[in-house]
Design a protein around this nucleic acid. Sequence first.
DNA 1: CTATGGCACGGATT
DNA 2: AATCCGTGCCATAG
Length: 477
Amino acid sequence: MRYTQNQMYQKINTQYKTETKPQATAHLAQTMTLLNMGNGEVEEEIQKNLAENPALEVDEIHHCTICGTEISFGSFCKNCMNNQLNQDVQYLTFVSIREFPTSDQVGDSDDYFEDGTVDRQTLPEYVLRQVGMELDDREKLVAASILTQLDDDGFVDVDVLELASYYHIPISSVEKVKSMIQHADPVGVGSKDAQEAMLIQLDELKKNKEIPELIENIITNNYHTLLKKQFSEIAQQYGVSIKQVEEIANFITENLNPFPARSNWGDVRNPKENELLQLDAPDIVLSFLENNPQNPIVIEVFQPANSNLILNSNYHAALKNVDKETKMKMREDLEKASLFIKCLQQRTNTILRMAQILVEIQEQYIREGDKYLKPITRAEIAKKLSVHESTISRAVSSKTIQLTNKKVYPLSVFFDRSLQIRTEIKEIVEKEKEPMSDLEIVKKLEKKNMHIARRTVAKYRDMEGILPAYQRKEKTK
DNA sequence: CTATGGCACGGATT
DNA sequence: AATCCGTGCCATAG
């Protein structure tokens, strides 16, 4: 396979080319810290810089990543987009600004990546249609009012009092409307934040499913600890084992979606496909071009929102008309600002290149599933990209990736050394009529050229939640 | 005696 | 330097 893609990288690379200057050390330090962060954290960092540094400005105009011409939104102008599509390539790699299509953009022919198969009604319309028939006219107004305030993630902070007084209806009615919206598909829209959304989803799940105890408490009281995966802390607090907390965390990631609006909300038919595995929006998204599994894989590397930062041109112009001292300060601001921009670009560039290599290596895994995950190490990737191992290590840490199955995983899935064997074990167990002991499984695996110790089989079995042989016997009945 | 889980060691990885 | 992971040894259960 040849990559016409390479040409594109060159273009991007020249565009992002960074000269090393006296500030090289500061530059390095900042790139490192930025690389360590996921998009969410970087966003905070950007906001901080914007607030502190007047030389920094957000460019409202989007530019095509390849040719640089102005575009209304997205990452590419139509020409470049079409060029890319016409080329016979294996992968398409894009840098996108993170933004959820807002109501006026959904349905716009410009949104290339929107799943072409779903009905393109907007989220508010979609929800209103579900709840509408059960509401009287006034309540409909309230519903509409709430729904139009939804942000990109489908969240809204409803001021119940205000709505009630504005529409002259009792508070309880507003609450009722709010609750109906929240329980409509996608469950959790109209919540204040991810936390509330998940609690509501939990509520729904309760109806047909056993849910772990404590889970509500943990989401309510320990949300942030949970995000940071500090399970031991939570375990201590409730006096339960770490394993139990992990189980709860797994349950959450498998059954709840903290960003209800981000899943394919048009698609009611198979809501089970909408699960997210992580509690945050992904940094990288993989999908098939035009949603067709035969097509090339589209790699979207997301830049934190608002990251099309530029130097404030007025600031530069103003330099001439000030006294020496302020001039110095302003110069400093400008340098800091340009440094920051460069660092961001370098971060994106590194992640981009890494994503491309990873997809290249793990294509089979992405297309065909767990069984085909090739065990690789960060060091190998570093070598291929000729960067230091720690660079890759940073680039992988605290980043998430959405695979073509719409699930979000930590980027480190690609480096899971045992997933392949674990799925193999899973298959063996499923296939065998008579439960096999761990030792027998070892032998079976040897035939497939997978050499691991008996003890290890036991561990993997445990990880996959497969019961020991003697207990499986009863299950087969 | 066999199957499995707990603990901990050492080498690899980050 | 810290962490992760496979594995060996041993205890325990059946």
